[in-house]
């Protein structure tokens, strides 16, 4: 019974909102605000007949390539820097500056080096995403208890075991925070870089619809983009719950 009630509580407002949109837009002949019915009827013919593979898949591939690159670089560099106080002090102001550059302005710069192909987009995504991951990994490595370091040493853990069980584990709550921020940056950057220069991809297609005044199609693209954002956030939450299960358990005990 409680379960049903919580489901009901969670769904009432979204259902009401969608219904409100559906009915208020039903008779709309405003060119820019088409009825929701028209937008939804456009979805299958717009996206499911080829575009899913031709535009959505490349966007997602670029996103995952750039994001994984940022994770690999950010975590390894961040943990290394976090372990050494002098290194951290040397790097801090430069990182502070590089992090403050709004990532989309890197698109024109990286276009100089990497042209307008996939590698440009991947580099842009990686460069934009790496800072929150890196800075949080630095914090994470720093925040590990001294006693744990000493314990690991006393027990004679080898470097590999120390890295995996002490450093990576201990820093993971911070790393996850950084990775979550980076994920929303990644989505923004994949869309922006495709709006700039591309021949396929979600960002490219949506702007194409807008320029050709295919308004219901454009709306369907916006909804799809929103859905992708929501799904990625959900997947992240699942991964987080798995990776940080020990941490949440520890917090509950305290």
């Amino acid at each position: 019974m409680r379960f049903i009630r919580s489901i009901a509580t969670a769904t009432v407002l979204p259902v009401l909102l969608v219904a409100a949109w559906w009915f208020t837009s039903l008779g709309s002949d405003d060119f820019f605000w088409p009825p929701l019915r028209d937008i939804l009827t456009e979805v299958p013919s717009t996206w499911f007949e080829g575009r899913l593979g031709a535009d959505v898949a490349p966007s997602l591939l670029r996103l995952s390539a750039g994001y994984s690159l940022a994770l690999a670089i950010g975590i390894s560099a961040g943990l290394a820097i976090g372990l050494s106080a002098p290194l951290r002090q040397y790097c801090e102001p430069v990182f502070e500056f590089l992090r403050s550059i709004p990532p989309p302005v890197l698109v024109p710069i990286i276009m100089l080096f990497a042209g307008i192909g996939d590698s440009m987009k991947i580099v842009v995504i990686a460069f934009g995403c790496v800072w929150p991951i890196l800075l949080n990994s630095v914090e994470g490595a720093r925040s590990i208890d001294e006693v744990l370091h000493d314990t690991a040493r006393v027990y004679g853990l080898g470097p590999a075991a120390r890295f995996r069980h002490l450093l990576l584990r201990g820093a993971s709550p911070h790393i996850v925070t950084g990775a979550r921020q980076a994920l929303s940056i990644a989505i923004i950057l994949v869309v922006i870089s495709e709006m700039f220069a591309a021949s396929n991809g979600l960002g490219f297609t949506i702007v194409q619809f807008q320029r050709s005044f295919a308004i219901p199609q454009m709306w369907s693209g916006i909804l799809l983009l929103g859905a992708i954002g929501v799904i990625l956030a959900l997947v992240f939450k699942l991964v987080e719950n798995r990776v940080l299960a020990w941490y949440f358990g520890l917090r509950r005990k305290q």
Binding site: A10, P14, S184, G221, L225, G226
Partner: peptide, 18 residues
């Protein structure tokens, strides 16, 4: 709660064409 959780991850750049 569910609506906030749903609307928040919608990337703001999706609104650019609109």
């Amino acid at each position: 709660a569910s609506t906030v959780e749903f609307l928040r991850p919608i990337p703001s750049v999706a609104l650019i064409p609109l």
